[in-house]
């Protein structure tokens, strides 16, 4: 019975992941390996970026028409924010589908999302990355790592640490069924600051982490150390988010640009 329950939980979480995220690793890898009929539009300089802005991300940029005449760094930062807001929305729906999450104290649900969403975003972003760049605009565009690096500081410093994390993370060769449980484990984390019902969340977390361990053993029988390696990634993600939060504050100041209200809520008093 216990094994059946564990398999059911893994399945429920995987189904919620497939249902709620518009992009996943399988889709991203199909595009990145050139197995789609139309390859993504490659953004590698100012000219290709402008073309992409007029077509692929017209909606995003259009929503802030005032940005039209702003510098490229500010426009890219704005696009990153739009994508983050959308993923936070998807993550919230995903979290609600994780058994037990919705019955938690509402304050604790807020806390878990506040601290978990960016770790989850960077874990999932790796699916859209290879060593040369990143899929954007639902996979219709590909922005090169070199172009992002060529931008003015501090915006140029924003993506490189995520690429470095992604290359190591992608080497673990997780699939979407593994990632679904990993993202659930990130969100249901008992040591976030300010949690009220720690015991309840720790129980949920233990359950999910145990299911993740069993799932990895079955799904990757040749990699016996995958589970401890993934636990280490949880710590790496926390560090990545701390650095990112500091950088965002710097960008906000130096670029005199605004932050989406949802992201403001998340970053405020975070670390």
């Amino acid at each position: 019975t216990q094994l059946a329950d564990q398999k059911t939980l893994a399945r429920q979480i995987y189904d919620a992941y497939l249902k709620n995220f518009s992009m996943n690793k399988a889709k991203a890898r199909t595009i990145l390996t050139g197995k789609t009929s139309t390859p993504p539009f490659v953004i590698h300089d100012m000219e290709t970026l402008q073309l992409a802005e007029q077509t692929l991300v017209a909606k995003m940029v259009g929503s802030a028409g005032a940005l039209k005449d702003r510098e490229v760094e500010v426009r890219i930062f704005h696009c990153c924010q739009c994508t983050s807001v959308e993923t936070v929305t998807e993550l919230t729906e995903f979290a609600k589908s994780v058994p037990g999450f919705s019955s938690l104290d509402l304050n604790d649900q807020v806390t878990l999302l506040k601290y978990g969403v960016y770790e989850a975003i960077f874990a999932m972003l790796a699916s859209c990355m290879n060593k040369d760049g990143l899929l954007v605009a639902y996979g219709s565009g590909f922005i090169t790592r070199e172009f992002l690096k060529s931008l003015r500081r501090p915006v140029s410093d924003m993506m490189e640490p995520k690429f470095q994390f992604a290359m190591k993370f992608n080497a673990l060769e997780l699939d979407d069924s593994d990632l679904a449980l990993f993202v659930a484990a990130i969100i249901c984390c008992g040591d976030r600051p300010g949690l009220v019902n720690v015991t309840h969340i720790e129980e949920m977390q233990e359950n999910i982490v145990h299911v993740l361990q069993l799932h990895l053993l079955a799904n990757h029988p040749d990699d016996t150390f995958l589970f401890p390696k993934l636990l280490q990634k949880l710590a790496d993600l926390r560090e990545l988010v701390t650095e990112h939060a500091q950088l965002v504050q710097e960008i906000k100041k130096t670029e005199d640009t605004s932050l989406h209200p949802l992201l403001q809520e998340i970053y405020r008093d975070m670390y």
Binding site: C82, V85, E86, V88, T89, T92, E93, K96, L106, N107, Q109, V110, T111, L113, K114, G194, H260, P261, L262, E265, I266, R268, D269
Partner: peptide, 21 residues
């Protein structure tokens, strides 16, 4: 906490499209 995180709170209570945010 809920007061300081109105949008997150709202997302948790209903399905809100990011377009509406």
């Amino acid at each position: 906490l809920k007061e300081k995180h109105k949008i997150l709170h709202q997302l948790l209570q209903n399905s809100t499209s990011p377009v509406d945010l």
